[in-house]
């Protein structure tokens, strides 16, 4: 199982980056997003620049890599005509899907890194003094949380017949509702509950808290707890979506058709 998972990660990374559009999403898009965010926030304080330009555009890059990869990978296999083969392979389909998500997440992390280096080197954005353990610990947890959310999205999109339309649609609403480039406190009250139910909201909040001046473990406790709770909820959602896809495939026999 572990060997299949690691091999899937390797194959997925190669297959994804072979697509010109994905190359654009990973390498060029972060530069556009970072420049756009920097031009908008240009004269703000260093801390605000780091929280909303560096972390915000980095997270937008990560999200784009998820939207154009993990969320649509099952649909892509369907298009290639290989979905049925993956589904009946001796290795669990869930393991293959997780391998794909990890592969894409590595590319997403590289994309975040490109945005960060570009802003730090070209626009000379100051990086605040931070506690490495707190920041990198938070980052690892954020990546796990986003992976779980991607697993759910990937299967939920598989159940829909409109994967492409949804894939093109969800990019900006998530930027907006999850507060990638501004605090969610400025959103209308009726939107906030939706924000709180989405892991990216707490993920970026956790990274902001972890990079604040004098950040402490108790300071990140709130977003960390909320994110942990959401991870557990989305694991349950993901499980049910997985069962639904499996049932649909076995009962209706339509896995590779629509």
């Amino acid at each position: 199982m572990m060997r299949a998972l690691l091999h899937t990660v390797k194959v997925q990374m190669g297959l994804s980056i072979a697509r010109p559009m994905f190359k654009f999403i990973i390498i060029v898009n972060p530069l556009f997003l970072a420049t756009l965010a920097f031009f908008i926030y240009g004269s703000s304080s260093p801390e605000r620049l780091f929280h909303y330009v560096v972390l915000g555009s980095g997270f937008m890059a990560l999200w784009s890599s998820i939207v154009y990869s993990s969320a649509s990978d099952v649909q892509r296999e369907r298009f290639y005509g290989t979905l049925e083969l993956l589904f009946v392979a001796p290795v669990s389909f869930a393991a293959i899907l997780i391998g794909k998500i990890i592969g894409n997440m590595v590319w997403g992390l590289i994309s975040m890194g490109i945005a960060f280096l570009y802003l730090a080197l070209l626009f000379r954005i100051e990086v605040p003094a931070m506690q490495p353990l707190l920041f990198f610990g938070s980052l690892v947890f954020v990546l796990i949380a986003i992976s779980v959310f991607s697993f759910f999205l990937s299967l939920a999109f598989t159940l829909s017949r409109q994967t492409n339309a949804l894939m093109n649609f969800i990019e900006y609403p998530i930027y907006l509702v999850c507060g990638f480039l501004f605090p969610i406190s400025i959103l209308p009250d009726w939107v906030k509950p939706i924000s709180y139910l989405l892991p990216p909201t707490w993920a970026i909040e956790l990274l902001r808290k972890a990079t604040e001046a004098n950040a402490t473990f108790s300071g990140v406790a709130m977003p960390l707890t909320a994110l942990l709770a959401l991870v557990l909820i989305y694991i349950v959602f993901g499980y049910f979506c997985y069962r639904a896809v499996e049932n649909k495939a076995r009962i209706n026999g339509k896995l590779g058709v629509y």
Partner: peptide, 22 residues
């Protein structure tokens, strides 16, 4: 509807909220 109406409107809303804040 998704691609030509909802997607552009969500893009507009995102940038409107952003510039209003900044």
């Amino acid at each position: 509807l998704f691609v030509m109406v909802l997607n552009p409107l969500s893009q507009l809303l995102f940038f409107a909220v952003l510039v209003n804040y900044v």
